[in-house]
Computed example of a mutant assay.
Amino acid sequence: MGDVAQISEFGKILIFLITGIIIVCGIFAANRLFSTYNPNPEKLTSYECGEEPVGSAWLPFNSRFYVIALVFLLFEVEMVFVFPWATVFGSHEIAKAAPQWGLFSLIEMFIFLGILILGLLYVWCKGDLDWIKPAVIKPTTDVKIPASLYEQLNLEQSTYTVRKFSLEPAAVAAGTAETAPATPQPIRKPMFKPTFKKPENE
């Protein structure tokens, strides 16, 4: 018999992916078999941060969410190509068989990442990653009063005095409390006397 063929690096990744899929599917199958299924209206409602979902799900949202999701998806998919490159670059068998492949793959990956970084800089400089900010609009009126008069009115704080809060009548708060003797206010009695009827059953 000949030598047993070794599993390549890509084969190991494939076995890892197959094992992960089998484990996840097995967990879902076990959950389906052993868990109880008692649906009710509370369980069937959609979970929304602990709050009751109110209204329709079709709500307007900022368009920058869509742009940022596209940019993220683009770079995320392209970064997947780094993993096969890492397996080739880190392979000792390939490095021994053809040493020039190590330098070639290193230069190729620097070029690939450089293109990604240039694309990110282009998107950044173009402003696609900036959030939409409302334009600040300064209100204007057709009043003929100059703005300097408003500023002068705001600066004249000495002419306006703030009186202290008091529960006394206005005359006492204005300063007549020192001259007029303090007379106690009579206690007001209710105008009517509440009466309660007894139930007729008793």
Rank of each mutant, 00 (worst) to 15 (best):
P184E: 11
I94Y: 06
P134L: 06
V80D: 01
V136T: 11
L106M: 15
E108C: 08
A69Y: 14
K96Q: 10
I94S: 05
G114N: 03
A173W: 00
I137A: 12
K164A: 12
L121E: 05
L116R: 02
W101R: 05
K189W: 04
I107F: 10
F75V: 11
Q100F: 07
V123M: 07
L153A: 14
L113Q: 06
A180G: 01
H92R: 15
F104L: 15
K189T: 11
Y160V: 14
K189A: 07
I137G: 01
K138P: 01
P181E: 12
L121D: 02
F112C: 00
S158G: 04
F83M: 15
W85L: 08
K138C: 02
F104Q: 03
M79Y: 04
M109I: 12
L118A: 09
I107R: 13
T141C: 07
S148Y: 06
L120P: 00
F165A: 13
Q157W: 07
K144S: 12
T176Y: 05
V77H: 05
K133N: 10
T140F: 06
K126Q: 07
L113C: 12
E156Y: 06
D142W: 02
E178L: 02
T140N: 15
V77S: 14
A98Q: 10
L74R: 02
M191P: 03
V82C: 05
L118S: 13
T141K: 00
A69V: 06
Q152G: 08
V172C: 00
Q100A: 10
T176I: 03
K96V: 05
L73A: 15
E156K: 14
L129K: 03
E78R: 06
